[in-house]
Design a protein around this nucleic acid. Sequence first.
DNA 1: TTGCAATTAAGACGCCATGTCTTAGGATGC
DNA 2: GCATCCTAAGACATGGCGTCTTAATTGCAA
Lengths: 147, 147
Amino acid sequence: MTWNGRIMSREPQDVTEAELGLMQTLWDRGRSSTRQITDLLYPGGGQAQYATVQKLLERLEGKGFIRRDRTLFVHTFVAAVERDELIGRRIRGLADKLCGGSLVPILTHLARNPTLSESERKALRELIDEPDEPARRPPKRTRGRKG
Amino acid sequence: MTWNGRIMSREPQDVTEAELGLMQTLWDRGRSSTRQITDLLYPGGGQAQYATVQKLLERLEGKGFIRRDRTLFVHTFVAAVERDELIGRRIRGLADKLCGGSLVPILTHLARNPTLSESERKALRELIDEPDEPARRPPKRTRGRKG
DNA sequence: TTGCAATTAAGACGCCATGTCTTAGGATGC
DNA sequence: GCATCCTAAGACATGGCGTCTTAATTGCAA
């Protein structure tokens, strides 16, 4: 069985370090071609680096983190998962692995964090006080929990 | 150079999945021996599982996440890094890799999180208000208003 | 059309992290 | 003395990951 923690059980897969570089590029500059990404990430890179980017893009596509447009000869790519979404996944993963699934330990850690400047603290406070939409307060009765 | 992202540059190293199981045990039950941990993590395990735990403990010690007491014949282990500290490291790593080092994107994500219950929201708010300000603040309504 | 450059596509490669297990050598206790 | 527990050292397979080579395909200019 070799039950490992990541070999079996089909975990959703994550973006690796090098792949993250490509994601950043797509997030920052939007739809791009392999060439554009390569020039940006490996300035002065040759065929080898180009192929590396290719492979990374292929894997990212396979994992569903980017989408490829094949209509033109030169394919273009866009992020299928936004930066914030990835942040969310990481936080959730962190909560699952270290906090029994709860976000509270993370929250408290953040709140107690001394590196949190007063302005950040203030910004956070406002964000918390302000749920989502101004027109949405009454219908909120202990809902929206997923198992 | 083979600059990879983890091969070179001596990154502080992280706790792996299996190792995390041992850490949880040490966090929960405090100082423990290899035997105790093995019985807990691999019930009915034999010599093989015992050795696995041994190796994991050895690696954790090497990485500085636990401390070993060799005074007695049977060594005992304690966590050298607390759960909260590890949470902090992960958050920081997340911020570095995905947020350019800033915690704000993480904070905003959390604040916007729909799975955050009202009680959690409230708890967070209190935690934020607490640290810096000793005890000098009218009940509420600090900031003026926001659009 | 021919030829060159760029692009896609497929796969090989080496390294090492990771979890697992085997074995040897000491200490303990009956 | 002998079985049993422990430590210690290391072997091992698997797979992730970043990298690179090579071949096939397409576009474009001369």
